[in-house]
Nucleic acid binder design. Structure first.
Lengths: 159, 159
DNA sequence: GTATCTGCAAACCCTTTGCAATAAG
DNA sequence: CTTATTGCAAAGGGTTTGCAGATAC
């Protein structure tokens, strides 16, 4: 596990050509237009947002290439459909998203005290998804696993 | 697994004395008052709501013992704290709840087409929670696992 | 040139909150 | 009696939408 550090932290990625090209390809295939706003949004997410909410994205775009919140909200379903993003959790009344493209599938540990998100991988979850789906005649497309509680720092603090 | 049938279906439970008494006890212990509104809400949930949203609860109470939505919204955190309820998922922009008291822990299969919820139990999930928490120094308080995809009926329909 | 997309502002809708009246203990 | 709780209506706040102008193709 590594503490989730991406929120509001700049974390440049080497070459985005491939990822951006994949997104443009998705748009064209679907008959959607490749606009500078959509490119700016996707690029910002690929560059510096592993986890984010709409406001963070809006603010981080404002400096270089301002995009209205309306356009961000309209772009999100497209990015989810393209496999670039996923909704992860609701906190304080608004949704938080996570970049999926180019990252391994993982699950979350959520601290109820400091609200930080930690990530981990547990291979048996995919097996559970598979087994239960087979048992129930379900055609699964994904799963989500989350653990909540107190992180080690917050346990220490309360002692 | 059994299809989740409780939504807007009456499903009487034998004797609610014990469950209601537990809820009253919780209120008293915390210094909260036992009001007829809180009793009506808790009783309605225990009697006929395994899964529900605020509007369903509001409407089902309206006939016999009307309770305002404000009071329902104010009662929910208390019921969650008492262990009677849990938030389960956000759909169509509003929260859905599930009765916890007197039911076994289970996970959900969510059909993306018909939006029905199916339930299942997978014992290894508790083990994953335990193992990961130990590994990460986390003090866990619960977990949630969800699988989404197409239920068998919806697969057949689309064929 | 034409249909999609954008920004703006207003609309939406679920949820929360202020306040005066009511009821629990 | 005292203080928590209720219902109402208004406010809040994230998200969606109508529309006119801009832009991709």
């Amino acid at each position: 596990m590594s503490e989730e550090m991406a929120i509001s932290q700049f974390e440049p990625v080497g070459d985005l050509t491939e990822e951006m090209e994949a997104f443009r390809g998705f748009l064209k295939t679907r008959g959607y237009r490749v606009t500078k706003e959509r490119e700016a949004i996707a690029e910002s997410i690929l560059k510096n947002h592993d986890h984010f909410d709409v406001d963070e994205l809006f603010l981080s775009l404002r400096a270089k290439t301002p995009v209205s919140k309306a356009s961000i909200y309209r772009a999100i379903p497209l990015m989810i459909e393209s496999g670039l993003l996923a909704e992860v959790y609701l906190e304080n009344g608004h949704m938080h998203y996570e970049r999926v493209y180019g990252r391994e599938h993982h699950s979350h540990l959520r601290c109820l005290n400091c609200h930080r998100i930690f990530e981990f991988s547990a291979p048996e979850l995919a097996q559970v998804e598979k087994r239960i789906s087979r048992q129930e005649g379900f055609k699964s497309e994904g799963h989500k696993f989350e653990i909540w509680g107190l992180c080690s720092a917050c346990q220490a603090e309360k002692r």
